[in-house]
Structures are given as structure tokens and as C-alpha cells.
């Protein structure tokens, strides 16, 4: 009997080890996909932040914390990921505020409010898998799961990626055991390319079928309000500047947010069409023909937001603290270096 129990236990242990190894090998490395691991760097950050930016691509490619500190002494972090839905933003913020209860201002980009359900399982999974395990993550998974997904596959990702076995290469083995660095700058993903807006493009945005933003996303915005209130943080709503019919921000949606902000006594800044005030030049400040800002456009928008945060929201200038200055200088240097490298490789 003893022999049998020992054999069963050993077989179980070997099975678990084999599965863990296989899982490590089969989970696709997202480090060759620049937008694959945008959230995980935050876990390593040990310093406090006065401002947290939450949202999707418009925010993680639009706000540069290094610039905010360099020019305004604002300590900030961007907690954004690809196509991050409102419920994901809510649970990510919940995790963030648990770690940093003294955040002064939370800036949320409202574009994701247009999604009433998770648009793409694969992209959603990148966000969710990047979150550290917590109750918030579990709730985020539950809120984000699409029809044919199984909860078990988040606990055992091999259930999701097992059929990658047929496309494994030697590179996958190398990647599995390689050490990866965070490629973001406090959550900001740098884009140095320039792909100007096509001035001859006369396409019109698609007609809006339902002018109301989905009730589910508004429900999570409401929850986000309550969460910020609970932690004494001011919630500021923004709509990032864009110049494309693809990610069009409709007037009807804008009116709804204006009215909501008024009702909740929140500040809402819509930067769409504020090109002159921001100093944006769409022939130079975008890397994908107006959909998102590149590093030049991001710096301009960041400076504008920095002004607003100092002037209208009383965010403190933290410069002068030697340790903090040194920490941020390292970050600014890394940021500047990558920007220069990007310019050289053009």
C-alpha cells in the first residue's frame, strides 16, 4: 500500500512539473509583441504616485510620466493596456489603490466606454494575464470572459495555449528561460515612428446606431467614481486627442459624458479637435495616421495635461527630494535614450 501511495504521489509531482514546464513553453511570449506586457512593470515600482492614468492605447501611448516629472515634478504611472475595457480599468484601479491608497488624482480616458462587452478575447487575455493574482483580478476575469472561455484556463493557461505545440520553435525555448525587461516608461509605450494623417482622406465616420453609451460600461464608470471617492482621489475624465474616423468620438457620446461629469461634479476634458491649443501637428505627431499619438504628440499632450493637473487639480511638485529626483532622473535618462535611439533608426 505504501509503495502504491508513494508511486501515485511521485507520478502526480512529475505530472505537475511536466505541466508547468510545458505551460511555460507554450504560453506565447508577448515580448516580441510590443503591446503584450504593458501592465506587469507596475509591480516592480516601489515609489508612490500622485497621479494614476487609466485606460487603453490612447492613454499608454499618449501620457509620458517622465515628462510630467521632468517639467512639473508630478509623480505618475500609466495603468493601461491594449483595448482595456472599463471593467478592466476599474479592477486594475482597485488593485492600484489598494497598493497606493494616497493617490491624489485618477485620470481615466473615456474611449473604452463605447464597449459594452469584451471586444476580443485574445487582447482581453493579454490584459488579464498581466495582472497579478488578487480578488480584483478574479473579478476582472469574470467580468471580461467571453462566451466560450473557461475560468480554469486563467488558472492553468496551458488549457488556452496547449495547441501551440505544433508551432513551437527553438526560439520559444530560449524565450521561456530568458529574463525580460519592462519596455514601458512607467506604463508609457513609446512610439517614435511618424505616419502622418492623409489630408486627402475624406472618409466619414460610420453612422452611430445607438447613441447611448452601453449601460454596462457606464455602470463601471459609476463604480470607478465610488472607488475614487472611497480613497479620496479625484477622478478626472479625459478623451485623448485623435484625428481618425476609425476611433471616432461621437458628439452624442461626448454629450453623455459632459452630462455625467456635471451630474457627478467631475472634471472632463475632451482633447479631440483641440489641436491648436495642444500644438499638435498631425503630419508629424502620430505614428498611425491620426489614430494614436507618437512620442512627439504624446509629449505635447502630456505637457498640456501637466499644466492642468498643477493649475486646476493642485497636484504637488515633488522635485527637490534627492532620492526621488535621482530615481526619476534614471527614468528620464532611459526615456531620452530610447527616444534618441528611435530617431536614429528612422
Amino acid at each position: 500500500m505504501k509503495k502504491r501511495i508513494f508511486a501515485v504521489v511521485l507520478a502526480l509531482v512529475l505530472l505537475l512539473v511536466a505541466l508547468m514546464l510545458a505551460q511555460a513553453l507554450l504560453i506565447p511570449s508577448r515580448y516580441d509583441n510590443r503591446e503584450g506586457h504593458l501592465l506587469c512593470g507596475y509591480e516592480q515600482a516601489t515609489d508612490a504616485h500622485d497621479v494614476i492614468f487609466v485606460g487603453d492605447c490612447e492613454i499608454y501611448e499618449g501620457i509620458v510620466p517622465a515628462v510630467l516629472y521632468e517639467q512639473y515634478g508630478i509623480t505618475s504611472y500609466v495603468r493601461g493596456s491594449s483595448q482595456q475595457t472599463v471593467w478592466q480599468s476599474y479592477y486594475i484601479l482597485e488593485d492600484t489603490l489598494k497598493k497606493e491608497p494616497d493617490v491624489k488624482v485618477v485620470v481615466f480616458n473615456v474611449l473604452a466606454l463605447k464597449y459594452g462587452e469584451t471586444p476580443r478575447e485574445e487582447i482581453s487575455r493579454m490584459t488579464l494575464e498581466d495582472m497579478p493574482w488578487s480578488l480584483s483580478k478574479l473579478n476582472a476575469i469574470r467580468a471580461s470572459m467571453t462566451k466560450d472561455e473557461s475560468l480554469a484556463s486563467y488558472f492553468m493557461p496551458i488549457l488556452r495555449y496547449h495547441d501551440r505545440w505544433s508551432s513551437l520553435t527553438a526560439e520559444d525555448v530560449k524565450r521561456t528561460f530568458a529574463k525580460h525587461e519592462d519596455i514601458t516608461h512607467q506604463g508609457y509605450l513609446m512610439q517614435t515612428n511618424i505616419v502622418p494623417v492623409d489630408p486627402t482622406d475624406n472618409r466619414k465616420p460610420d453612422a452611430l446606431i445607438d447613441s447611448a453609451l452601453p449601460a454596462r460600461s457606464m455602470e463601471y464608470l459609476e463604480k470607478m467614481c465610488a472607488l475614487c471617492e472611497q480613497y479620496g482621489a479625484e477622478l478626472v475624465l479625459v478623451k485623448a486627442p485623435t484625428n481618425s474616423v476609425k476611433y471616432y468620438w461621437y458628439d452624442e457620446w461626448d454629450a453623455q459624458i459632459v452630462s455625467y461629469a456635471k451630474e457627478k461634479n467631475l472634471t472632463y476634458y475632451n482633447f479631440v479637435g483641440m489641436d491648436e491649443g495642444l500644438g499638435l501637428d498631425w503630419s508629424r505627431d502620430t505614428y498611425d495616421a491620426g489614430l494614436h499619438l507618437n512620442v512627439y504628440g504624446a509629449e505635447k499632450w502630456t505637457r498640456y495635461i501637466g499644466d492642468l493637473l498643477v493649475t486646476n487639480h493642485g497636484v504637488q511638485d515633488r522635485r527637490g527630494d534627492a532620492a526621488l529626483d535621482a530615481l526619476w532622473q534614471e527614468r528620464i535618462d532611459r526615456y531620452t535614450q530610447e527616444k534618441q535611439q528611435g530617431e536614429q533608426t528612422k
Binding site: L19, A22, L26, P28, R30, N33, R34, E35, G36, C57, S82, Q83, R120, E121, E122, I123, R125, M126, D148, E149, S150, S153, I158, L159, R160, Y161, H162, D163, R164, W165, S167
Partner: peptide, 18 residues
């Protein structure tokens, strides 16, 4: 678990956002 046909299936291109 490894070679079974189940789940959503993996399509590398679907995981590319940009």
C-alpha cells in the same frame, strides 16, 4: 492536456494588437 483538441485554439496573429 497538451495534444487534445479543445478550447478556443491558438492563432498567433489574433494576439497582435497594434
Amino acid at each position: 492536456l497538451v495534444f487534445g483538441t479543445y478550447g478556443l485554439g491558438y492563432d498567433a496573429s489574433a494576439f497582435i494588437y497594434g
